[in-house]
Simulated scan of single mutants.
Amino acid sequence: MEIKLDDLTGPEIAQLLDEHLQNMAKHSPPESRHALNLDGLRKPEITFWSVWENGHLVGCGALKELDYKHGEIKSMRTSSSHLRKGVAKKVLQHIIAEAKNRNYRRLSLETGSMTAFEPARRLYASFGFQYCKPFSDYIEDPNSVFMTMEL
């Protein structure tokens, strides 16, 4: 697997992010969806990576700088045809390493509280993320869980 800095212009990434947004719409009510579209991910405070294997896009992930010591994981997604192959683990390792390189002290994320998001929550917990209160501009929401880790 190769992780590449991505400029969000390729049709493959547009399709994967569309799949991501459709999945969020299927599992989360509108007021609880925090996934970003292409334009939302093209902000200067967000760094976006795509993951490729044998010329095929297999996943993606992003890191948003909340402030100079705190980052947020955004847009973690594995292509539905590559689930349970270690893609998410590889992306998460990459994002954590980048956060450490930036000297962040904390890395946080928001994900869904529903059953469909259980694999993601287990993955984050396996890396040492712990449940926390809402951070940044998030508010308490029964459809969201918040996790964080000290770096």
Rank of each mutant, 00 (worst) to 15 (best):
M1Y: 03
M1C: 07
I3T: 08
I3L: 08
K4Y: 11
L5N: 09
L5K: 11
D6F: 02
G10C: 10
E12Q: 15
I13H: 07
I13T: 12
A14N: 12
Q15V: 10
Q15R: 15
Q15Y: 13
L16D: 02
L16W: 12
L17K: 13
D18W: 06
E19D: 15
H20R: 13
L21W: 03
N23K: 13
M24E: 12
P29A: 09
P30C: 08
E31D: 14
R33Y: 06
R33D: 15
R33G: 03
L36R: 09
L36A: 11
L38Y: 02
L38Q: 11
G40T: 03
G40W: 00
R42C: 11
K43H: 12
I46N: 08
T47Q: 15
F48Q: 03
F48D: 01
W49N: 09
W49K: 09
W49Q: 10
V51N: 06
V51Y: 06
W52A: 14
W52E: 04
E53N: 15
E53H: 15
H56Q: 15
L57D: 10
V58P: 01
C60F: 08
G61N: 02
G61P: 00
G61E: 02
A62Y: 03
E65S: 12
G71Y: 04
E72Y: 02
S75M: 07
M76D: 04
R77D: 00
T78Q: 01
T78K: 06
S81W: 05
H82N: 12
H82I: 02
H82F: 14
L83W: 11
L83G: 00
L83F: 09
R84E: 15
G86D: 10
G86Q: 10
K90F: 13
V91K: 01
Q93M: 12
H94N: 11
I95W: 04
I96W: 08
A97F: 09
A97N: 13
E98W: 05
A99G: 14
K100G: 07
N101G: 09
N101Q: 12
N101H: 10
N103R: 11
Y104I: 06
R105W: 07
R105N: 14
E110F: 04
E110C: 08
T111Q: 01
G112Q: 06
T115H: 14
T115K: 14
T115V: 15
A116P: 00
E118N: 12
E118P: 00
E118C: 02
P119R: 11
A120D: 07
A120P: 00
R121D: 01
R121F: 01
R121C: 05
R122S: 12
R122L: 14
A125L: 06
S126K: 07
S126M: 04
F127K: 09
Q130N: 09
Y131W: 08
Y131L: 13
C132Q: 07
P134D: 00
P134C: 01
F135R: 01
Y138C: 00
Y138M: 01
I139V: 13
I139F: 07
S144E: 03
S144R: 03
V145A: 02
F146H: 03
F146Q: 01
M147A: 04
M147L: 14
M147E: 04
M147K: 06
T148K: 09
E150H: 06
